[in-house]
Simulated assay, not measured.
Amino acid sequence: MAIGAYEVKSDFLRRWRDRGLAEGEAKGEARTLLRVLAARGISVPEDIRVRITECTDLDQLDAWTDRAATATSIDDIFE
């Protein structure tokens, strides 16, 4: 039996699949940002942690991660 990629033909299922993929990508980006902050020794207050983990805007998460690479404090990221 050959196993291949299943092609979703239903618009309804495609929308839900795409939504799930986008949510998963955002969670991964948020996790990466939190790891960068931890590696840099930057403390993350709970309200900022919630803001990061609830964010679904990939461009915003990318911008925060870029700033985190050179930040010396949490204020350098969330101005």
Rank of each mutant, 00 (worst) to 15 (best):
P45Y: 05
E25K: 13
A69S: 11
G24S: 10
F12Q: 14
G41S: 15
M1E: 14
P45R: 13
R31P: 03
L34N: 04
K27W: 04
V50W: 02
V50L: 11
R14P: 02
D76I: 05
F78N: 03
R51H: 00
T70Y: 05
T70K: 10
S43F: 06
M1H: 14
K9D: 13
I52L: 07
R31Q: 14
P45D: 13
L21Q: 15
D75C: 00
L34I: 01
R17C: 01
F12G: 04
A69I: 08
A2T: 14
I48T: 12
G41R: 06
D57Y: 07
S73I: 07
C55T: 10
L13C: 03
D62N: 12
R17N: 08
A71Y: 03
D66G: 02
V36L: 11
I42T: 04
D76P: 01
T32F: 03
A38G: 12
L58V: 13
E23Y: 12
A5W: 08
E7R: 15
T56V: 09
V44Q: 07
A68F: 04
L21N: 12
R40G: 05
A68R: 00
E79H: 02
E7N: 09
I74L: 08
I52N: 00
V44A: 05
T56Q: 14
D66Q: 12
R15L: 13
D76T: 05
K9Y: 06
A5R: 15
D57P: 03
T65S: 07
G41Q: 08
V8L: 15
